[in-house]
Amino acid sequence: MESVGYHILGGIVTIIVAFTVGLTYMGLSRKITARIQNRKGPPFYQNFIDALKLASKESAIHHGFMQHSGPAFLMVSAILSVLVIPVLNNGNWFPNLNFHGDLIFLIYIMVFGSLGMALGSGQTGNPNSAIGVTRGLSQMVGFEIPWVMALVAIMVKYQTTSLVDLLEVQQTGGWLMFSSPFAFIAGVLAMLGMFRYSPFDIVSAPTELASGPVSENGGKYLFTMMSSGSIFAFAKLVLYVDLFLGGASNLIELLAKTFAIYMIPMLYGVVSPRYRTEQAIQYFWGWPLFFGFLALVHALVF
């Protein structure tokens, strides 16, 4: 049995890797977006420079305890998520804290940060923040249903709530994206909403809400949000790879698979205008929900 220290060390390394990979992916997405837009774009490490700058700034505006806690909730949610998800499937690196039932835990913990952020933004008193929060929670209602249906379909089909078990299933039976295609499609379509790239960037929508929930935040608050965003992005990507792409046995495989998944919302966002809130919900309750139902039927019948 591995020692507690081994687990703690693994957890710290996981968080550092998640932070680094997440920010790098964001930087690469800025670069790729720029190239599509006929621009040179910033260097891929620009986000690290931005993060450092934000971390070094003093925050002059305080609206109270909840506003202070909002970004912290986000960070807690991101770190807990990434610690529960097995990063590599050979068990030697990044063992982390995964356990039987971790999928159900993830369903809850992945929305915890957004709810905390909603409370924090609500206290700022800025109407743009409040509207942004309402939009975010509404959109979450939209994509969470097909997302949870996809997860439930997988849990029912393979009779497990453990990501480690699902990884083992895929070692022998092939990737779930082929054996549970409807769940994969529903999951990917729901993922578009989770990453909040256009057309689902309705929460921050600059031309509509002047950045929405983050509009009263600066300096260290923004740094915390940026860091938790990068860690959370990594967590979501690894979760998709673990769920549908058979996990990864080494870092290079992990990076290749996660980057490929990351490109889906990013590239779709480059060529898409933004939905309105009700249009976004209608979208998620359309084809994604349909595929979610199909996934459930497929899991129950086959």
Binding site: N38, T207, P273
Partner: peptide, 16 residues
């Protein structure tokens, strides 16, 4: 027009 709707690629293209 496109920037107001979140399609920033068009703005970069056309202004370029």
């Amino acid at each position: 027009q496109n920037g107001s709707l979140g399609l920033y690629t068009m703005g970069q293209w056309s202004v370029g």
